[in-house]
Amino acid sequence: MSDDRTPYISVENVSKVFGGYAALDDVSLEVHEGEVLCLLGDNGAGKSTLIKILSGFHQPSSGTMKIQGEERVFKSPRDASDLGISTVHQFGGTFELMSLDRSFFVGLEPTKGWGPFKWFDRKTANEIVVREMQALGITRVSDGNRLVGSLSGGERQVSAIARAVYFGAKVLILDEPTAALGVKEAAHVLRIIMEAKLRGLAVVLVTHNVTHAMTVGYHFAILIHGEKADDFAKGERTREEITDLMAGGEAMGELEAELARLVAAGTQPA
């Protein structure tokens, strides 16, 4: 899918080999600002490898990456985050026993004072975290002192997104953000994703859930065995086509037929 605009990230012919096994094979992708790119695929299809390359945890074995048209090599996650690429892992904020304001500012603490007597400005941190959480619809959080572990899975996910947005992320990489959530919470997280998109961020959403992908996605890429099997815009494929592709092509149809036979056999009296 080509486009006149310069993509924020463009991945060109990227491969990643782990000990002789190609986890990613010649994949090219574009990530645009103000757009949600859904990365679909079965387990082991290479989704994680791809986002780890995007976020600087892995370096590609071959191929290049361009950020705003300029070729870049990420040596560490820090390099990626310096260029505005922020990864929100499954379950979000992982510091269960830290207070929300402490965890929100880990590594980027606001300080007051001077020299060796600089101190972590908890008051400012607390105000910011409450404001940012409330702006994203988490109105229950009125005190940054509460422990992260006392938040629900969706709230933690939102806090992680809020953190990325607050620190100026241009690209949000979300790894299965709705996997562990209930229906209502998942809908809330999807809403936050749309909001991030409307604020002009590029979102890369990794998911198993075709429904969630079709809800927020604008652009879709499907990976099968490390290769890009399909790449299309919203409305170009039906749900059935996507599901079949995700499961690795025609296999799903056969599986369903066999399942139907078994179900039919099971319902007949023995």
Binding site: A135, L136, G137, I138, T139, R140, V141, S152, G154, E155, K184, E185, A186, A187, H188, L190, R191, I192, I193, M194, E195, L198, R199, T211, H212, M214, T215, V216
Partner: peptide
């Protein structure tokens, strides 16, 4: 926390998030 989230059904509504806050 979810009381402010608009009741949306992701199955049927493709654009659930165009609220005022956006």
């Amino acid at each position: 926390s979810l009381s402010t989230a608009r009741r949306t059904d992701p199955q049927t509504s493709p654009e659930p998030a165009t609220t005022k806050e956006a």
